[in-house]
Design a protein around this nucleic acid. Structure first.
Lengths: 238, 238
DNA sequence: CGTCTTATTGAAACACTTCAACCCTGGTGG
DNA sequence: CCACCAGGGTTGAAGTGTTTCAATAAGACG
């Protein structure tokens, strides 16, 4: 499968047998390009295939109280829709942020691969639980933390997840989100996001211009955002 | 397994073969009683067994910004910790609210049952994805909705989930949560929860006394809370 | 080069929090 | 059996973080 970033990420945590790696590698995907704001899935769809994000960013999105609520962002190597394997319909939208490329794999194909190896079952199941873990942290973020911590936490999470797949260089990474996107993700107004980002800049924690974020003081930013990456479960399993 | 409520709930959605039902029924659980506020698991624990809630209520809980943040409540028939099957450590606390009883099953036992039937694999995997779906909805709730909708939504969700396992009679159900618990779940102050509940009462939507909630106008309450139960994926699968 | 989106700023309004006091109820021990 | 106590619910008033509205500036793009 050309989704080498996915394999790269899981091999951080799980030792794949040569057979399992070969089975993963043999999966053919159908590539599809998505334009800015183009939906991959819409709420209520009943997908018969899953997507792995090859490049770019997606957001998973619902409308609540007439607001666009972004539930989570997907980064390259993520499956944004693995839950459709077991839940009939998808309960939120999946949209591209900027241009992106996904690789589509039929549910049938995934199930064949999964069923052939209990290790691969574990691996894919684990992926969906990681998803849940991120949502849990996100509940904390929007429910309990103030605006400054909230935005700091989001930036820390993006950095950590992008770093795993090698998309961070020197604390610097591409982030094609508008301040309105951040507002939709954090449950804040775009105006307040603007002021919050300015405060983060003023404190010397980050720079953010031309769609590029650079973290100047990772330790301080993580403290401010109460970011403890344990919930990403990146550490190796025993 | 004495967790008949769990079986009852999944049979709403999935047809079990006689063998699968027998396999589930053969699982022995070790019963454990929990007192009010007693932890089943603490953040960082590495459980080697899962629990199914037999009676009472649990909450899954983290500390964020010096606040107790309740992530979700568990109702009888739920597995509050199924994700420990695949994530090594648990990233939040699981506490009893009021007295409760759980049934403990070793990971090994569960895995044996699961591996014997792809239908049962599907069933348990699906459970963990339901979990994620509830967290997604909860992100919307705390990030996008105002206090009145937020509390209304919580009450609607509890009613819907309790109804599936037969714990609602005539719109009325036991809910041993304090207003502080609601505050911790919804990201509000206890004072404001109090005023919000009073407003719900004043509007003739609910009564709530002596730990018993009664929904007087389900349609209106669901509208107010924007509660659309699709995310609970209770409908039968094709 | 004009047009559209995104970022920025100021000021007023508001939802919710905080603090502090009081009340009520159920349980406990003397 | 009553007095006391602790936990939970209720109320009022002041404070504040964030939103909303509205206008301007600055990029990005064809």
């Amino acid at each position: 499968m050309p989704a080498s970033l996915f394999i790269k990420r899981v091999e951080h945590v799980i030792d794949l047998s040569p057979e399992d790696r070969a089975a993963l590698g043999s999966i053919r995907v159908v590539e599809r390009s998505l334009a800015h704001r183009e939906p991959l899935w819409r709420e209520g769809d009943k997908p018969v295939q899953c997507a792995v994000l090859l490049s770019g960013f997606l957001c998973r999105h619902k409308v609540a109280n007439d607001r666009d609520q972004i539930l989570v962002f997907s980064v390259p190597g993520d499956f944004p829709d693995l839950q459709t394997l077991h839940l009939g319909s998808i309960d939120h939208n999946v949209l591209s942020i900027g241009a992106s490329r996904v690789g589509l794999i039929s549910h049938e194909r995934i199930k064949n691969v999964i069923n052939a190896s209990s290790r691969l079952t574990h691996l894919f199941w684990r992926e969906t639980q990681l998803d849940a873990a991120m949502f849990r942290e996100w509940v904390c973020n929007v429910a309990a933390r103030d605006s400054l911590s909230r935005v700091a936490h989001l930036i820390c999470e993006m950095e950590a997840r992008l770093a795993i797949v090698g998309l961070v260089e020197n604390g610097s990474f591409n982030l094609p989100f508008t301040q309105q996107d951040i507002a939709n993700a954090t449950g804040m107004s775009n105006v307040h996001v603007n002021r919050t980002v300015q405060e983060l800049r003023k404190r010397g924690l980050i720079t953010w211009e031309a769609r590029t974020v650079k973290i100047l003081n990772k330790k301080a930013l993580r403290e401010l955002g109460e970011f403890v990456p344990d919930y990403l479960h990146q550490h190796s399993l025993a």
